[in-house]
């Protein structure tokens, strides 16, 4: 199973971001929290068939 450190390394690589060593711990905490938040959002059964709040209009 991949650790959050390994997943974070991939995300940083994708983003082209190379934070200094002293930022790594804080970024890892933020990443881990972000993953948990994402899981939480996708676990809300009531939102399963909802439309997004952002709407596109062809006319503007």
């Amino acid at each position: 199973m991949h650790s959050n450190e390994e997943k974070l390394a991939v995300v940083l690589e994708m983003s082209g971001i190379t934070p200094p060593a002293e930022d790594q711990e804080a970024i890892l905490r933020a990443f881990s929290t972000g993953r948990e938040l994402s899981k939480l959002i996708f676990s809300v059964a009531q939102a399963r068939y909802e439309e997004p709040a952002l709407i596109f209009s062809a006319r503007v």
Partner: peptide, 17 residues
């Protein structure tokens, strides 16, 4: 300078997903 190759990135992204 990229340090991870596509294999590593995809592996990580699939794991994250």
């Amino acid at each position: 300078m990229p340090t991870l190759d596509s294999e590593a990135i995809v592996t990580g992204l699939l794991a994250a997903a």
